[in-house]
Amino acid sequence: MTEEVIAKKEVLEHTGISYGQLYRWKRKGLIPEAWFVHRATVTGQETFFPREKILARIAQIQAMKEDKSLDEMAELLSPEASEEGSKWDDPTRLRAVGSEAKTLLWKPSGYTFRELVGLAAGGEAMRSGVSRPEAELLVHVVRVEDELLRNPAGAVAILAEKHIEREGLSLRVPFVVLARDPIKLDSQSRMKHSSDLERLVEQVKLGLGEVR
C-alpha cells in the first residue's frame, strides 16, 4: 500500500506557508524527519511528503500557533520527544483511550506515556469490535515497546490470528506484530485489526496537552 505523496512546493502553495516556516518547523521537530522523502525527478532532486499527514499537521500547527509557542507545540506534536518522566492516573479521561478501555486497566494509577498509547490502541480495537482478551494482548505488547513509540513514523501494531490445523486439531491463535509498514503475514494468518501507532501517539500527546 503506497501513500499518496505531495511535493514540497505544492505543500507551500496549498497551505500558504513559506520555506522559512517549513524548515523552522522541521528543526523544531514539529514535522518528523521521516516524512521528508527525497526523490530524484527529471527536474532534479525534490522532497515529497505523505500528503494527508503533512497537510493535517500544517493545519494543526497553524491553528495552534496563535496561542502556543513553537517549543510548546513541539512538545505536543513531536513524536520523537515522548514524555517519559510523567505519569497519569486516569487514562480513560483521554479521548484517545476512551471508556471502553476501562476493563483493560491493570493498576489503579501511575500510567506512563507508553502505557497510555497501549491503552489507546486497546480502546480503539475494542470500539471496532475486537474482543477484550485480544485487545488486552495488544495493550501489553504495545506498552513495552520503546523504539517504535519514540519514533513512530509508519509504525503499526497488527492484531492477527493464525489458524493451525493438524491431525484433526484446529486452533486459532491470536498474536500481535509491531513493526513499520508494510507488513506481510503468512497465508495461514489473518489480520483482525491494525492500529496506526503514529496517529495514536499523536492523539495521546494532544489529549494530554488538553487535560493538563
Partner: peptide, 19 residues
C-alpha cells in the same frame, strides 16, 4: 545540490536546483 528559501542571493555557487 539544492538551495531552498524565501529570499535567496547567491554568488559563486554551483547548485543543481534553486527554489
Amino acid at each position: 545540490n539544492v538551495v531552498e528559501g524565501d529570499d535567496i542571493y547567491l554568488e559563486a555557487t554551483r547548485a543543481d536546483v534553486v527554489r
